[in-house]
Amino acid sequence: MAVLAHAEAGEIAARLRTLALPAHQDLRAPENGLVMLRGRVGGDGAPFNIGEATVSRAAVRLASGEVGFGYTLGRDGEKARLIALCDALVQSSDFGGAVERDVIAPLREQLTVRREKVAAETAATKVDFYTMVRGEG
């Protein structure tokens, strides 16, 4: 599900449109709020508060009873609703496979490509140290 939090609402919606979705309803309408983000002293010590982030959340129930929750950074409530819908669908034996194959897998692939590009550009800035040879005899 982490893949969906990294995608745009439009990308998730476009891929969901390729599926014949079952009936579903909002269990919790999308809402915006804050989550206090925490770090650790020294990176690995006691926790402390860095600052907050905007977060959206929603919950969706399929007609067949499965309940899905959607949480994501940002103020896009529709994205939270789409994540909740996917979360409900993956629990359903009728739709789980299709959502994984047609929604999550392609978005995961897209995220991997994006990350590999950043990693390759970053790697090019890695310092190769070499020792200067002093004098020529």
Binding site: L34, V35, M36, L37, G39, R40
Partner: peptide
């Protein structure tokens, strides 16, 4: 602006050792 939104809670502490470093 932040004072206008409800707080859902606090995150798990982030793991900076697992950062995808760009620098």
């Amino acid at each position: 602006f932040r004072a206008t939104l409800p707080r859902f809670g606090a995150s798990e502490p982030v793991e900076t050792g697992a950062m995808r470093v760009q620098r």
